[in-house]
C-alpha cells in the first residue's frame, strides 16, 4: 500500500490530477486491482526518482525522457545464478536496444552489494539502490513488500514522455522472463506509428 502522504506526493508529481482520471486504461479486473493494489498501471505518469548507480553517481528517470525505459524492480541481489532474471536481461539487452530502450534495475540492496553483483553477473545496465530511505521509490511504484522489506518483482515499460505503458507484477518466486517487456515495447512502437500517421 502506498501511504496517504506518499500518495499525495505522487499526485503532486502528476500535475495534481485526481487518481481516477490518471488511468487511461482501466485495470482488467477490479478484483485483481484491489488485491494487488500496488503496482502503478498503464496511463500513469511514472514518478521521477534519483538513485545511486555507483557510490558517487545518481541516475534519474527524467534523464531518459525521449526514449523508452524499462524498470525492473527485483527482491534481492544474489539469487541463484542461471535462473537469475537480470542475467537473462543482460543477454537480451541487444533486443531492448533495438527499441532504443534503457533498462534500470532497482532493489533495496546497498550500492556495494549492487556493484559486486553487477560485476559477477556481467550486467550491462544500471543497477540502482533504493536503499535510503529504504524502498521509497519501490513504494511509489507500488512495488514494495512491506512485510519482508524488499521490492516486489515488478516490471514497468515507460514511454518517451514518461508515461507508464505496461506494468506487471510477478507472482512469488516466478521469474517473469523478457517476453512481456518485448511485447510491450513492440506495442509502444505500433502506437507511436499510428499516432504519427
Amino acid at each position: 500500500m502506498v501511504q496517504a502522504s506518499k500518495r499525495g506526493r505522487i499526485r503532486k508529481l502528476e500535475n495534481k490530477r485526481p487518481a481516477r482520471n490518471r488511468r487511461q486504461q482501466p485495470l482488467k479486473s477490479k478484483k485483481i486491482g484491489k488485491k494487488v493494489d500496488s503496482v502503478l498501471g498503464p496511463g500513469n505518469l511514472a514518478p521521477n526518482f534519483s538513485l545511486n548507480s555507483t557510490p558517487d553517481q545518481k541516475v534519474s528517470l527524467n534523464d531518459f525522457r525521449g526514449q523508452p525505459v524499462i524498470l525492473a524492480f527485483y527482491p534481492a541481489d544474489w539469487s541463484p545464478v542461471c535462473t537469475d532474471q537480470l542475467s537473462l536481461y543482460a543477454v537480451v539487452m541487444p533486443e531492448f536496444k533495438k527499441f532504443n530502450a534503457e533498462l534500470l534495475a532497482i532493489s533495496v540492496d546497498n550500492i556495494w552489494s549492487h556493484l559486486a553483483f553487477a560485476k559477477d553477473r556481467k550486467l550491462n545496465f544500471p543497477v540502482l539502490a533504493d536503499f535510503e530511505p529504504k524502498g521509497v521509490v519501490s513504494r511509489k511504484y507500488g512495488a514494495f513488500k512491506e512485510k519482508i522489506g524488499e521490492s516486489a518483482r515488478a516490471l514497468f515499460v515507460i514511454d518517451d514522455k514518461g508515461i507508464i505503458r505496461w506494468s506487471h507484477l510477478s507472482p512469488d518466486g516466478i521469474n517473469p522472463g523478457a517476453d512481456g517487456i518485448l511485447s510491450a515495447l513492440e506495442n509502444l512502437n505500433k502506437t507511436q506509428a499510428t499516432e504519427k500517421s
Binding site: K35, V36, S38, P75, A76, W78, S79, P80, K145, K147, I148, E150, A152, L169, S170, P171, D172, G173
Partner: peptide, 8 residues
C-alpha cells in the same frame, strides 16, 4: 534463496 511475500 528468494524470500516470498503474500501479496500476489
Amino acid at each position: 534463496l528468494e524470500p516470498t511475500g503474500k501479496e500476489a
